[in-house]
Design a protein around this nucleic acid. Structure first.
Lengths: 355, 355
DNA sequence: AGCGTGAATGTTAGCGCTACCGATAGCGCT
DNA sequence: AGCGCTATCGGTAGCGCTAACATTCACGCT
């Protein structure tokens, strides 16, 4: 034993500096050194250029350009406890009604310096919770969600996170926070009323309502109520189960509907994608639309008005939802009180040739 | 004046701890305290559960559940210098051929613990640089880009970032790094050959090639070459300029084509979206397709085979591109050597009723 | 008993940035 | 001159996490 350890007073070993896999990239202080100012000043130039006088700002900006500095947002987020980031959770992004919402939402927020990251749940609510959890790891300053019905786990996460939330594309008497949407049930009921007005009496609803699309289920509810009130008959419904939201599935749904309810004089679908598939199948088979069978969709995709015959559908102000959602969320993130935090944007039955 | 300041030896003021707007959220050490272990052990459980024995792991996991802990990824990124994040830059996501690529790419990478964030350039290459810059702020571990032609600013950013990159949906003799794609020119030439084989002699190309869609421009090149080689005539082209990639624009393009080249016996479009709009317009107007006019698209969207008449188009293995891109990128991110870093996935002319 | 070994866990020092505060200089006023 | 004010800039201490190392302990061996 060495005398040292016997003495009971061990000298701390001479510390060599820790090895860290250093980032090869340029940091704030590199820029600061190059510009001859402090890191703090560079930070100010990056975040709020007007807070620094012209001369200094020019020198710092030159140094940034010369060094090729790209700020590390992870460090910024950590230090400032703000991520300047907003997360959007949608069921599906491609070929979907939500594309316009996300696009306008993201454009509106980008103008205020926010980046949006989008997650898709593939129409599986149980998936929503996982996606949400991994998104919350990035500590978004705000959150957009499609739909108003969530699992209890999702609600717990939202509550714990304490982040401003906008729900969209639905309606609820008890929203989590902000709400920009409309009643899917009322929209579907309006479509039933339209079809009844056109003389249809045996209307079948075809959708994907049992497998995790709560909005389709709400539309089914509206359909059921309307059929009972207006026609007095039993509802006629067919369900696609877990099939994807695609035109192929629309054909399948059409076949199911005609097999189970051969006397149907109208089929309304829970999405334009389904209706478009069914409509083209009818054209190919020579089924007279709307003579023999009326068809209707939901969403008013661009496709709907181009098809021949043009597709009757329910138009929803998809882009407007995104804009409004961004507006309300910005107000809330600013900490200001939000006027009328629940906005009904409505819907409109667009009667075209297929009904 | 106090004696202190007169004495010239000012005591350092007693430092009260800095006030920081404390995060209200649960941190690693909260969990550690609750589980009776160190923060490091909790970190290990979160990142690599197998590195901790069952008993400890169970206790820590219980503590995580009890506290509702959600890891702060910004802190993790900063400390580990890895973001477990991959960025994808695409021209457009909704109603586009890239949707399948992004989807399969993201699925393949998610299986390895990576999150994908997607940015869209709206078909504006000058926008690409801005989007890239803001993405690099998040220090992605890898990058997917659509296309092989980039601005010099983009190339400089990529070089400085030193991040693995996969380019897709194109072909180049001098790629930035990895490449999974095919020759747009060859694909367009093959379509010309198909149309010529069907007896067409006055083929017009309609696209959006002057306004920032390099892939459309490449297709135009292939078309021009093929027309010269096979037909000997002058190329006939019409351009949509900055119009959006939408069915409406397809109708506009059709009208332009028929106005400028009234004797056209075939029109090939740079996208299925354009072709679908044009095709439905023909159906509505009673133009015989393919009798009077053959139409062809590009991309083989689901829509193409459902339309009546079904649309002739070029099928590209969009999902396969995403998968392969993920595979190569994973290998590179692992630091392993990549076999055959440039993969040609090919294309296929799908002859249907419209030609 | 003493030692080497390896598994399990703890300790320490940052990662790059910003909040917070303090220091200084310049200005207009009494 | 002295005062108070504002504009400008710098110093310091973390934000929550993990890499790198250190320590502890049980175990099998000589």
């Amino acid at each position: 034993m060495s005398p040292d350890s016997v003495s009971g007073v061990t000298q701390p070993p001479p510390r060599r500096p820790r090895k860290r896999s250093a980032t090869r990239s340029v940091t704030l202080s590199d820029v600061a050194a190059s510009a001859g100012v402090s890191a703090q000043t560079v930070s100010r130039v990056v975040r709020d250029p007007r807070s620094v006088p012209d001369g200094t700002r020019a020198r710092v900006e030159a140094a940034i350009a010369a060094t090729g500095y790209v700020p590390n947002l992870a460090a910024s987020n950590l230090a400032s406890n703000r991520s300047r980031t907003v997360a959007a959770l949608v069921p599906q992004i491609s070929s979907s009604v939500f594309a316009d919402t996300v696009h306008s939402f993201s454009t509106a927020l980008a103008a205020h310096g926010y980046q949006i990251f989008v997650g898709t749940t593939d129409y599986r609510p149980e998936h929503e919770e996982d996606v949400l959890r991994s998104f919350l790891g990035r500590r978004p300053d705000g959150l957009l969600m499609v739909g108003t019905s969530h699992t209890s786990g999702t609600l717990a996460l939202l509550a714990a996170a304490g982040v401003p939330v906008v729900e969209t594309w639905g309606w609820s008497d008890d929203p989590v926070d902000l709400l920009v949407g409309f009643s899917n049930a009322a929209a579907a009921a309006a479509m039933v009323a339209h079809l009844v007005g056109r003389g249809r009496r045996r209307i079948t609803f075809a959708g994907r309502h049992t497998s995790g699309d709560p909005r389709a289920a709400e539309r089914l509810d509206g359909y059921t109520t309307a059929v009972r009130d207006l026609l007095g008959g039993a509802p006629r419904t067919v369900d696609a189960g877990p099939e994807p939201v695609a035109m192929d599935t629309g054909v399948t749904l059409l076949d199911l509907a005609l097999e189970r309810y051969p006397d149907s004089d109208a089929v309304m679908f829970s999405s334009d994608v389904f209706a478009a598939g069914a409509l083209q199948a009818c054209v190919r088979r020579g089924t007279d639309v709307p003579g023999t069978l009326a068809l209707a969709g939901f969403g008013d995709f661009e496709l709907a008005r181009h098809l021949v015959p043009a597709l009757t559908t329910v138009a929803v102000p998809s882009a407007r939802i995104g804009e409004l959602a961004a507006e309300l969320l910005l107000t809330r993130m600013r900490g200001a009180p939000v006027e009328r935090p629940h906005r009904d944007v409505g819907y409109e039955v667009v009667a075209r040739e297929s009904s």
